[in-house]
Amino acid sequence: MTVGLLERKENMTGLHEPLLEVKNLKKHFPIKRSIFRGSRGTVKAVDGVSLAVQTGETLGIVGESGCGKSTLGRNIIRLQEPTDGKILYKNQDITHFNEGELRKIRRDMQIVFQDPYASLNSKLKIGEIVGEPLRVHRIGNKREREEKVQYLLEKVGLDKSNMTRYPHEFSGGQRQRIGIARALSINPKLIVCDEPVSALDVSVQSQVINLFQDLQEEFGLTYLFISHDLSVVRHISNRVAVMYLGKIVELAETEKLYDNPAHPYTQALLSAIPIPDPVEQKRRERIILKGDVPSPVHPPTGCRFHTRCPLARKICREEEPTFKERNDGRWVACHLV
């Protein structure tokens, strides 16, 4: 917590540059009717997102399905080509890097995926999976790589004897540990964690969350932690950004956001999560939103949330609110805040 705060302060005085900066990033996907005809519209998955990530912090990105949180993560490490906007890594514009340039930058950026069953090659042994990034980046000789893999497996809480086994011999939680070891192999600075604990059982999930935190402390890692689970995000993040239909609606320090949410969507989202205490659950007042999330092909005019917002007024239907900083340091996009 304090680390994040200190660095933010330094940044304000211009002493410290953020590790990663995203400026008005857009990613639109064309909808193809068929291969012969042109597109019939675009899905605006990410539609103008700006944020900065400081070295050593964890920025949580939360939102419901289809809000664009995963697309944002994939664009940041350039697994996808952004439609518009800028991505700056250590003040270097990487938005339009070609494959060769990207390969260098990817030594610094890695990703951990949600599905531990689909993200490990079932035909490779664990040693080969974890060592693959080292091989791709031509780091060390065979023996050195092997030593590194053993070291990594022990770091993530697996025995080094597992090197010769195959992914199917492991449980979900163990596979996720293997995925984390792979991401760590080339000493990255930034790890995009895309729903890394969502597929795990509660008792295993907490172990993996602790592992993420231990590794961050030991190696000074920076995380972009994407999840739909607000409880998990609260636990691991220094700051949290809430996304709705391709845009960030609120970004604030974790405590501020959870204790006193400003945007009506954040308020509704937090109140929708059932609390594991039947007495408190019955007592508290809840906001139940009406309707579904609108289609990102035709997002509503004005504020995108106005169709479900209990407080919506005329201005919300007509004018899009700007995402601006309030005097308490949080960023909110709402006319009424």
Binding site: Q205, S206, I209, N210, L230, T254, Y258, P276
Partner: peptide
Amino acid sequence: AMPSIRRNGKRMKT
């Protein structure tokens, strides 16, 4: 072991 929106301990019990 369950993370909660009401709890913000440093380390999770497992």
